[in-house]
């Protein structure tokens, strides 16, 4: 089954997010109050190792499992959408303590109330689609 590897990768990711407490509202509060290294350690380690991995992949022109070269798309050049959109995202992240991945991991963990947050996130995504053309990018 072709999809199984993605489910397994997701399971691994979900367990890691839960066990390292990255899905915790408390931990996100602690991060935004600069009262612990925990979340900075998680994101920092991931980015440093990720950057090394991307460098190696590019340097040695590594291929994916299907034999195609691994490519990276540059993000669109702009600043408004990133600063404005990012800030709106941050408001929600600090309020609910969850970004999109952890919302779903939390539902699995048994925090059913997160379903309302997910419903909101779907609504927010829809609203963006509706107002996209009217927003500064």
């Amino acid at each position: 089954m072709k999809g199984l590897k993605f489910i397994l990768t997701g399971i691994f990711f979900g367990i890691v997010m839960a066990k390292s407490e990255a899905i915790s509202w408390y931990r996100i509060q602690e991060m935004f109050r600069f009262q612990s290294f925990h979340m900075y350690g998680i994101i920092g380690t991931a980015v440093i190792l990720g950057a090394i991995a991307v460098f190696v992949i590019k340097k040695f022109k590594l291929k994916d499992s299907a034999g195609n070269p691994i490519t990276f798309t540059d993000k669109e050049k702009s600043w408004r959408k990133y600063i404005f959109g990012g800030s709106i995202f941050g408001l929600g992240w600090a309020l609910t303590g969850a970004c999109p991945g952890p919302m779903f991991v939390n539902v699995g963990y048994g925090y059913w109330a997160m379903l309302v947050v997910i419903l909101g996130a779907l609504l927010g995504t829809y609203l963006y689609g509706v107002f996209q053309k009217k927003l500064p990018h």
Partner: peptide
């Protein structure tokens, strides 16, 4: 909770 989700959803797509 709903509004928090809206901010995350709207903001992530905007960004």
């Amino acid at each position: 909770l709903l509004l928090g989700g809206v901010l995350v959803g709207f903001g992530s797509r905007y960004a």
